[in-house]
């Protein structure tokens, strides 16, 4: 019972991180209609910046997270402006290959700057543990903060997209780019804002991911990135609650798969979920069906 509950807690924690990354993927996919392959690597950059801010510049944790969010936001906007914007009219194959190039560029730049040796990330959240069920079930502070942050982010994002002017513009661009442009919405600016929000979330996700799993290397972000994309597809790409639901479910599936089925096949189980979801319900759990126009 305790084993099951501790797996449940781990699953929800990991799932919250996936959900936050998936939100970034999902928004970019919904609005710019492209798979931002480099999103996972923005997580890694965010975590490294936070690590440096704490370790070398001796900033307090909250300021370090803020710095890492700012750097990631700038990075996201820069990537979009330099690499993706010139390809607005290009085929999706060209955009995808560029995104892969950006992902490898970030990984290898990180490799040159920070080296291949893993650094041990010191948790930025205050360290305490909650013991339940007579001390058997331990919930770490990192887990609590991760779940709280994910919930807060989702509420804030839902309000932003449904209430604010920019959010309205985002929904319009996502619905029909051409028509939105005719209505006087700046498509480029809207897409930039989307990348900025997604990248800031990625930084938070990176910091929280590394607070739970503290080894940080230049490839830390790539696998969670792909899994978060799986989560976004699972929940229905383009949908904010969908990303949250998909992330949570995927985190639970991964942790329970590792604990009860096979620890070696953990990643394979997650990817099998992706394949099954795409085949059975390609629009995801909460996604809207897409009609094909000739």
């Amino acid at each position: 019972m305790v084993y099951f509950l501790s797996n449940l807690v781990n699953g929800i924690t990991l799932g919250s991180v996936y959900a936050m990354i998936a939100l970034g993927y999902s928004m970019v996919y919904g609005i710019a209609k492209m798979l931002n392959f480099a999103h996972g690597d923005v997580i890694m950059v965010g975590a490294y910046v936070c690590f440096c801010a704490v370790q070398y510049w001796n900033l307090p944790p909250a300021a370090a997270v803020l710095v890492s969010m700012i750097v990631s936001t700038l990075l996201g906007v820069l990537i979009e402006g330099l690499a993706y914007r010139p390809l607005r009219q290009a085929t999706s194959l060209a955009v995808l290959i560029t995104a892969i190039g950006v992902s490898y560029l970030l990984q290898n730049l990180a490799l040159l700057i920070w080296g291949a040796t893993p650094v041990i990330f010191s948790s930025v959240v205050p360290d305490f543990k909650v013991r339940l069920l007579g001390g058997d079930l331990i919930i770490t502070s990192a887990a609590i903060f991760t779940v709280l942050a994910a919930v807060a982010v989702m509420i804030a994002l839902t309000l932003f997209v449904s209430r604010s002017r920019t959010g309205k513009a985002m929904r319009a661009v996502s619905e029909d780019r051409g028509a939105a442009e005719l209505m006087g919405i700046s498509v480029n600016r809207t897409i930039s804002v989307t990348f900025a929000i997604g990248s800031a979330l990625a930084a938070v996700a990176g910091v929280l991911l590394c607070s739970t799993y503290p080894t940080l290397t230049p490839t830390t972000g790539s696998l969670p990135g792909i899994k978060a994309f799986t989560a976004a597809v699972f929940g229905g790409i383009g949908s904010i609650p969908g990303a949250m639901l998909g992330g949570l479910l995927l985190g639970l599936i991964e942790i329970f798969g590792r604990s009860y089925i096979s620890s070696e096949l953990g990643d394979a189980i997650v990817f099998a979920v992706l394949i099954i979801v795409l085949l059975v319900r390609p629009t995801g759990l909460l996604g809207k069906p897409i009609r094909e126009k000739v």
Binding site: A83, V95, T98, Y104
Partner: peptide, 19 residues
């Protein structure tokens, strides 16, 4: 040691300039 870095830059440049 710069191999993958150069590959990455090449991918981006070929796609961006080629399009």
């Amino acid at each position: 040691q710069y191999r993958m870095l150069i590959y990455a830059i090449m991918l981006i440049l070929v796609m961006v300039l080629g399009n």
